[in-house]
Design a binder for these strands. Structure first.
Length: 647
RNA sequence: GCCGAAGUGGCUCAGGGGUAGAGCAAUUCACUCGUAAUGAAUAGGUCGUGGGUUCAAUUCCCACCUUCGGCUCCA
């Protein structure tokens, strides 16, 4: 005899073990249709989980991560079943639920097209209508292997072979389709009322470019048609904010076939925003004790050999000349990072422990030879400029300086309005891939433990990602999602315990001993181009006043008012505002329409009345016509808005 | 680099084996205008580049370049 209860609700006693699902049917019959998984004593579980002792249950719905996960996972299986029924030679690799939906990687002779997606969707609908029960069963390893081998599911066999010995090997079966799968799943697919397959693309088996490329189908699914429609609408709206479209439309940047991939031409508007950002960053860093350097954009291979870039990063570098001849003759390479250059500044004289910490910053243009399929708008480039710095510190200063760098990063994100969109990732090394890193294992472990201690102290919530460290040390990466939900690093703070000794960087300690300093590599807004892209998407092109390339546009009503318009421009410009005049021979309605589309924050409409009274008719891009204002209060208002960096 | 899609005037897009079309933008003229598009006229394209097939290619085929969605990689 045991008692099963619902969190804050009914309870009931049972004397036979039963599935969580059956217990829920007894306890909350009206909710089971919307229950996709369950939490048992706080542990998320499949609805088929057997209960045989006292337990507290919480039904999980589409609103819960785990419930949604089960829902998407089942959607993925239904898609696989549909593909198998249409193309019986299909072999299945992995098909997980993801944040926004699900995908399945499939090995299939037939090349899937957009039209095929509609066909698969239609087939899925048919399969869902059957309301077939999804059965879970467990097999011993050899039987599991046989079952998949018999069906020629070579990828599943490989997966089984690599499962840990103590792992339970479970399958889920619906209709003719049986899949190796850890679950969770719905009891049947009926709740999957709305499905949309979004795209088909290539994906390497196990994510390695050495393996075969499979076809990946991405899809989304929802319990109701309405939710799907609003999701698709949101996607549509996201597309309209895409910096790569909007940024070009608004004249921030462009590209040309003649220059090459990943090499954008920043137009005056984009350049203005970059300049504002750079000045803002440099000024703030100066306030925080940084010293600006300006170092060369290229160097002989000798430098990179010391730093380790030649051995660990050469594929990512643009080498000028024949890299293979670097032993006999001078070979140059464009810099992919600034570190070794700023180290040369440090090495220029003998340093005392009293000199540390030294904080070198640089608005630093870098070159990285990204693979040709990698470039994307202003997010991934071959030439870009970052707010880079290297803090040369004593061991006793690491914590304070690391936290200082983090504080600066958070200050910048907050100023730009991006703070709420980021997450933190502690990127550690992968001890299995020693060749990717320099240095000794125990040093890595020691420094990582040190960094983890600092992170825990900092109060930020972070996730740990193994294998993402730099070749010289662990990193804190501040991640941000773009308008399509794709994650990129915006800021990074790294602890380097390797390069100082490689470069012979030392300081004389109190006791007269020469010691190697630690180096903190960090950015404060990260890459400027990427930051611009994220700002365009965040604000849908309508930059906050302090960042707007043009802050005010003066619009004379007719030709007669043009001279007065230029007088207004001069006055505002003298006050420090960025102003332009729309002197075209057009109607005011047209000037306003175009100004609004260009997302200019303020307009001054200037006609007879305003000129006679010496006032401005002010229009804001958000509030519309806000009436007449005296020049002084108007200027005050804008300068205050700039000063406070109103978002 | 790999898988897939695409490239037609400055921009957005239509067309399609027989010498290319719209809207916006540009230029000129008229209007001198009051809070999201005034009207008319003119000009502008070796249909991404290079090969091939064909009597004929912007259209079909191949290669390359560029862009987009993914994979791998990363700021």
């Amino acid at each position: 005899m045991f008692t099963v209860s619902i969190e804050n609700g009914e309870s009931k006693s049972f004397d036979q073990p039963l599935m969580a699902f059956d217990a829920l049917r007894e306890l909350v019959p009206d909710q089971v249709a919307k229950t996709f998984a369950v939490e048992i004593d706080g542990q998320p579980a499949d609805l088929r989980k057997m209960i045989s002792t006292d337990a507290v249950l919480r039904p999980l719905t589409f609103a819960d991560d785990y419930g949604r996960h089960a829902f998407h996972h089942t959607s993925s299986h239904i898609m696989a079943e549909a593909v198998l029924s249409l193309w019986p030679d299909a072999k299945f690799a992995i098909g997980p639920a993801i944040d926004q939906g699900f995908y399945y990687d499939i090995d299939l002779e037939h090349k899937l097209t957009e039209e095929d997606l509609a066909k698969i969707e239609a087939q899925m609908k048919k399969l869902i209508k059957k309301r077939e029960r999804i059965e879970r069963f467990v097999l011993p390893r050899d039987e599991a292997r046989d079952l998949m081998a018999k069906r020629d599911e070579i990828y599943k066999v490989e997966l089984i072979d690599e499962l840990p010995a103590d792992e339970e090997i479970s399958f889920y079966k619906q209709g003719e389709f049986t899949d190796l799968c850890a679950g969770p799943h719905l009891m049947n697919a009926a709740p999957v009322k709305a499905v949309k397959l979004l795209s088909v693309s290539g994906a390497y088996w196990r994510g390695s470019e050495k393996n075969k490329m499979l076809q990946r189908i991405y899809g989304v699914s929802f319990p109701t048609r309405e939710e799907l429609d609003s999701h698709l609408k949101a996607l549509e709206e996201a597309r309209a904010r895409d910096h790569n479209k909007l940024g070009r439309q608004l004249g921030y940047f462009t590209t040309t076939d003649y220059i090459g991939q990943g090499l954008p031409i920043m137009l005056p508007k984009g350049t203005k925003v970059l300049q504002i950002l750079e000045r803002f960053v440099e000024d703030e860093e100066e306030r925080r004790g940084y010293m600006l350097t300006k170092t060369p954009l290229m160097a002989k291979s000798d430098l990179y050999k010391i730093s380790g870039h030649w051995d660990h990063y050469r594929d990512g570098m643009f080498v000028i000349g024949d890299a293979d001849k670097a032993e006999e003759e001078e070979v140059f390479a464009l810099r992919p990072m600034t570190c070794p250059f700023q180290f040369q500044a440090y090495l220029q004289k003998t340093r005392s422990y009293r000199d540390l910490p030294l904080r070198y910053n640089e608005t630093s243009t870098l070159f990285r030879n990204e693979a040709s399929g990698e470039m994307h708008g202003l997010i991934r480039l071959r030439q870009f400029t970052i707010s880079e710095a290297h803090l040369i510190v004593r061991p006793d200063q690491i914590e304070a300086e690391f936290l200082g760098a983090l504080d600066l990063a958070i200050f910048m994100l907050d100023a730009l309005g991006l703070l709420e969109d980021v997450s933190y990732r502690f990127s550690t090394w992968d001890p299995e891939r020693r060749d990717k890193y320099i240095g000794e294992a125990e040093e890595w472990e020691r420094v990582q433990a040190l960094m983890q201690g600092i992170l825990d102290k900092s109060g930020i919530e972070y996730e740990t990602e193994s294998g993402d460290a730099a070749f010289y040390g662990p990193k804190l990466d501040i991640q941000i999602r773009n308008v399509f939900g794709k994650e990129d690093t915006i800021i990074t703070v790294q602890i380097d315990f390797q390069l100082a000794s490689r470069f012979g960087m030392t300081y004389t300690d109190k006791d007269g001993e020469r010691r190697h300093p630690y180096i903190i590599h960090r950015t404060s807004v990260g890459c400027y181009e990427r930051t611009l892209a994220l700002l365009i998407e965040k604000y849908a092109g309508a930059m906050p006043l302090w960042l707007a390339p043009t802050q005010v546009r003066v619009m004379p009503i007719s030709e007669k008012h043009v001279d007065a318009a230029y007088d207004v421009k001069n006055r505002l410009q003298a006050a420090g505002l960025r102003v332009e005049v729309d002197a075209r021979d057009e109607k005011i309605g047209k000037k306003i329409k175009e100004g609004q589309l260009e997302k200019i924050p303020y307009f001054i409409i200037l006609g007879e009345k305003e000129i006679a009274d010496g006032v401005y008719a002010v229009r804001s891009r958000t509030e519309g016509d806000i009436g007449q204002m005296q020049p002084e209060p108007f200027i005050e208002r804008l300068l205050d808005e700039v000063k406070r960096r109103v978002k």
